[in-house]
Amino acid sequence: MRIVFANSAWVSAAERLILRGGGWQRVRLRVRYGLIFHPVAGPVLIDTGYTPEALTGEGRGRMLQLYGTLLKPELNAAEQALPVLKRFGLSPDDIRTIIVTHFHADHISGLSLFRDARFIASDAAWARVKARSPRQNLRHGVFAELFPLDFEARLEGLSAKRRVEAREDVPGGSDLFGDGSVIAVDLPGHADGQFGLLFTGLERPLLYAVDVQWLLTALTENRAPGFPATLIAEDAAAIEPTSAMLRRFLAVGGEVMLCHDPAPTSYDLAPEAA
């Protein structure tokens, strides 16, 4: 099984907002999404990153326009989902599964590009999205307009997946493909229903921990930012227990990767030759 991550965009933030004790210098964060080449499920996307549909597309609601104006993401045209798929000889129709780690715009903005894909996501979190008003969803960082109209019909919820028990300091979770190769690990704190992905069949087990922290340094050096960064967390009290679980996983030889950390990893897509 091969795993690659691409960078859909960059977002700049003052270091002190994402790293306790950091300075005022700007840090250029990545906005990753992933592509799994699974031997049975075929090519599988992990989220979609930022796409023009969320940031520049016509017909966006006023709040989504304001969101783009405030955050100012810089789209990376070369590593948008469709060009990256083309590099591997794939089209949107070849993607039959998208793993949706949580429902923030930088993870779901391209779902509408994939007409035939099923969505593996937290059905419990989706039920809460449906129960809330649009204004309430905005307070949770969810723009309902980014979901395809038939999202629920194509949803394959985590609750239906076989559970894998934790062992020592290796977390358990939901077995996404029934073969133990990709385990969805609950990661409470940042967003409602957020889960990461544990890849067990690698030489060194990898846990893609999505948005538990913005910087790996904040995790490994226990320098998670406090107020005001915690204002945007779904459950600020859960961030440290989740981070501590990841540190234990690192201590037993695992590898942790984050969505926004700017440092390149061995799983990041290499730039195309000029």
Rank of each mutant, 00 (worst) to 15 (best):
L71W: 09
G226E: 00
A117C: 10
M245V: 00
Q25A: 07
L158H: 12
M1T: 13
W10D: 00
S243C: 10
I183Y: 02
P52V: 04
L82K: 14
K161W: 10
T56P: 08
L269N: 13
A13P: 00
Y50T: 02
G110R: 03
R20G: 01
P73K: 01
A233L: 12
P148E: 13
F147D: 12
G141S: 07
R162M: 02
Q65I: 06
A237I: 10
A9H: 06
V142M: 04
R132M: 13
F147M: 06
E203V: 02
L149S: 15
P39Y: 12
V27L: 02
M1Y: 14
G61R: 06
T48P: 04
P262A: 06
V256C: 04
V11A: 04
R247D: 07
Q194N: 07
T97L: 07
F143H: 08
S12T: 00
P271H: 14
L187Q: 03
R16M: 05
A270P: 12
K72G: 00
E168T: 00
Y208T: 02
P43M: 07
I98F: 14
I239E: 14
A251G: 13
G253K: 02
M63W: 15
E156P: 09
T200V: 02
D123I: 04
Q136H: 14
F227P: 01
P171E: 09
A105K: 05
G193H: 08
L146A: 07
H140W: 14
L70F: 08
F195A: 03
G226V: 01
V129Y: 15
L64K: 02
L219E: 08
V84L: 09
A184L: 05
R248F: 07
L207A: 04
T97A: 09
R32D: 06
V256H: 06
D235Y: 13
D169F: 09
D106K: 05
D186N: 11
S8Y: 07
L82N: 13
Q194V: 02
L71C: 00
V142F: 12
H260P: 03
E165F: 01
D106W: 11
Q136D: 15
I120D: 12
Q136R: 13
G22S: 03
S174Q: 12
L75I: 08
G253F: 08
D94P: 07
A224H: 09
V27R: 02
A124D: 12
V4W: 14
I46M: 05
G141D: 11
R223T: 00
F103G: 04
N76S: 09
G23S: 05
D192P: 08
D94M: 08
G141K: 03
L197Y: 09
R30V: 00
R248L: 00
P262M: 07
G23I: 01
A237E: 15
L146F: 13
I36Q: 10
R26H: 04
A121P: 05
R62L: 10
G157A: 12
W214S: 09
D211K: 01
M257W: 13
E168P: 01
